[in-house]
Design a binder for these strands. Structure first.
Lengths: 258, 258
DNA sequence: ATGTCTTTGTGAACGCGTGCACAAAGATGG
DNA sequence: CCATCTTTGTGCACGCGTTCACAAAGACAT
């Protein structure tokens, strides 16, 4: 994962592998686009291309759901949209709360992708009293004091944490205590939760660091032949293969801010 | 993944598995926290707990970097911070451009996590002429017309796409043509890029859908006892025992335990 | 009906990632 | 110097995920 999960020993799902579950939304999106263009059927090859995966993988993924295709023809788009939606639990409406209405929280509240696919922003919660009552994305922000009440009144089971790292664990604990069993965490912290609670993490700086690793590797690919052990601060390869990438700032010593 | 990856057949990295690379930022963060508390050394057990992983996994991960620990003692925090930073390419400063300064783009521009760890927001780019010149997070927004010039003048190799889905591929193409070789994509689309370009995807609605799947499974866990095989069509009551799977989008109250 | 053609569904092989369990290595104390 | 204790580094086995390759299944034409 790209993004990763926290804990959760094995895929206890009745049959559907976790990797497959992670791809179902991808297929669903591609299928929805086809549906809007009124395409009646699609082959595994075409759909796989649209979703950016291998066609054999796609077929195997679908085989876990059942035999929904027709040999020689392909898959019925509408039917498949329904089956995947049902499998993912999107035929019901999930109320979601967003905690931490800073820049990111506000962006999430405004994000259309929520409402469009089975999710509904039930409430926005922030610890800042000055935010209370202020509407964001048409929804008034409520104060953290009422968190438990909000969760219970709306039957919320999915929470989004967009607070600073320092507040995340505390918010998480309160969400879980109030009945939330799935958490999407944007704060750069490792959350600890009791068994039975799912946490998924989205971490911008981690993603960038992974890109930086590959970027560095690309830049030093020709020169790094037998690096052996640890050439310390020597590996300053220049000249990348083709495009003019070049070093941003020539030589930077071991800078490691904060 | 939270998140997934796009393409990239195999780990061509000289020795370091992709899964390990994805965890290095996690270790680095935990180590940085220890460093700030002036902790001199840390055992694999302690560090693993802080990073939320298995200690054996952590030791194996570090073994790919070299033998940086001392048996009977543990790892030197400062030294390890440096080694991981170097491995990830964070000892140099990576200029990054953010394209699409909507709610999300602005949030990213304001996100402290960028600057704090080796990344620098070199420019903000948006297609809306009304945005041009307007400062966001202290940086004036520039128009898309100047994209190529900005990339080249700043030696940017990492780009962040925070545009609407419809514009993403076009922006991506221009970024790549201008020399960008790593892309962090927030737009809900599958980007196609030439070989040699890395794409990482962060998709909020996909993460939520995965959570919804597990949430639904949890809700129907008690009733799902003897499922047997998949009864093809008329597939009813497989897993989601209680919840009304038929209702497209009624006001199904999100029933939740306790 | 029969044959051909397309596409699914899946058995099987392979490779990666994970976790156990332990030997090797060094610290520490007598 | 030797014994003991702690913790690393890793060989090994196992399970998951991916991919290949092909037989089975259906559509379609003759």
């Amino acid at each position: 994962m790209a993004t990763g999960r926290t804990h959760r020993p094995a895929t206890r799902s009745r049959g559907i592998p976790e990797a497959t579950v992670a791809r179902l939304p991808l297929y669903l999106r591609a299928l929805t686009a086809l549906s809007e263009r009124s395409v009646p059927t699609v082959s595994s090859e075409e759909l796989a291309a649209a979703a950016g995966v291998n066609s054999a993988k796609l077929r195997k993924d679908f085989s876990y759901l059942g035999s929904y295709g027709t040999r020689g023809v392909g898959y019925d788009v509408e039917y498949l949209v329904y089956q995947i939606s049902r499998e993912l639990g999107l035929t019901q409406d999930w109320p979601v709360v967003i905690v931490g209405i800073g820049n990111l929280g506000a962006a999430l509240a405004n994000y259309g992708g929520f409402a469009s696919r089975g999710f509904r922003v039930a409430a926005l919660i922030d610890a800042d009293p000055a935010m209370a009552g202020k509407p964001v994305a048409g929804i008034p922000v409520q104060h953290t004091d009422d968190l438990e009440k909000i969760i219970k009144n709306n039957g919320v089971s999915i929470g989004v944490i967009a607070t600073p790292a320092g507040a995340a664990q505390q918010v998480c604990d309160r969400l879980v205590a109030a009945g939330v069993t799935s958490i999407l965490n944007f704060a750069p912290t490792v959350l600890s939760v009791p068994d039975g609670v799912d946490v998924r993490k989205v971490d911008l700086s981690i993603e960038l660091q992974i890109l930086a690793f590959h970027e560095q590797r690309k830049a030093g690919e020709e020169t790094a032949v037998g690096d052996g052990a640890l050439p310390a601060a020597t590996g300053r390869g220049v000249a990348a293969g083709d495009s003019a990438d070049q070093g941003p700032d020539g030589d930077v010593p071991a800078v490691m801010p904060a």
